[in-house]
Simulated scan of single mutants.
Amino acid sequence: MDHPSSTTALTTAGGLAALCLLTACAGYTPTPLPDTAALDAAVTATGAAQPTGTPAPPESDTGTVQTKWGPLSELDRDLVRKVRLASLWEMPMAQDAVQRADAARVRQISEEIAAQHHTLDRQVRDVAGKLRITLPVKPTDQQQAWMTDISGRSGPAYDATYVKWLRLAHGQIFGLIGTVRGTTQNTLIRRFSEQANAAVLNHQRLLESTGLTTPESFPTPPS
């Protein structure tokens, strides 16, 4: 899904700086994929592989299916969809915070978060196209409630609410990324999970750098 001109503006100078920061934060090079260049050259924008003229099979939403990158599990698909959902609400809220946040630091980190989500969303759509995963097109009810809560505030209360909900959301998906990275047998998902891990970890650090994170900003620890 393409985004309006405000997203494009954020991915110029600010986007390049954010990507450099993302790379530095990751501290490693994502797992390389096997050499499938000849096959990938035939993959269209929608992910329909046509190396032999045979269209890719339709996606299955249940169980594990075989792909040229290895088995694709339900958990693998869940990660791809949840990263997409994260971008659907966090990117527009970060763009909004660039304009509305009270503190200069919150405006600064929001520009980086928005730019990095633009890149992450492009990666998620590429992976979903290749693996025939249907992506959500709007945030969940909970995410929309967070957006409403943030948008309805102003001044320092806007900043605190924005940081609280984004930090909580990043903490929730962080565990899923680790689980998928440790269990997936699909090389494309393994590499994507590393890209998502680098982005989410960096966003947590940026949000925490505002000094606005409180106990409410963190997921409830397991008992």
Rank of each mutant, 00 (worst) to 15 (best):
S6L: 08
T7M: 12
L10H: 03
A13C: 09
G15N: 02
G15W: 01
A17D: 06
A17N: 05
A17V: 10
A18Y: 03
A18F: 02
C20Y: 05
L22H: 07
L22S: 06
P32V: 15
L33V: 15
P34C: 07
A37N: 12
A38D: 13
A41L: 14
T44P: 00
A48I: 07
Q50A: 10
P51Y: 04
T52I: 07
T54Q: 15
A56F: 10
P58S: 11
D61K: 15
V65C: 12
Q66T: 15
W69Y: 15
P71W: 05
S73M: 01
S73Q: 04
S73V: 08
E74P: 07
L79P: 10
R81W: 06
V83K: 00
R84I: 09
A86Y: 08
W89T: 08
P92C: 01
Q95G: 08
Q95T: 11
D96K: 06
V98G: 01
R100M: 02
A103P: 01
R105T: 14
E112T: 13
Q116G: 00
H118E: 13
D121H: 02
D126T: 13
K130Q: 14
K130F: 04
K130E: 09
R132I: 07
I133D: 12
T134S: 14
K138G: 05
Q142M: 14
M147V: 09
G152M: 07
A157L: 06
T161C: 10
Q172K: 13
F174I: 10
G175P: 00
I177R: 00
G178E: 11
T179S: 02
T179F: 03
V180P: 08
G182V: 04
T184F: 08
N186I: 10
I189D: 01
F192N: 01
A198R: 04
Q204G: 13
L207R: 00
E208G: 13
E208T: 12
T213S: 07
T213C: 06
E216K: 10
P222A: 14
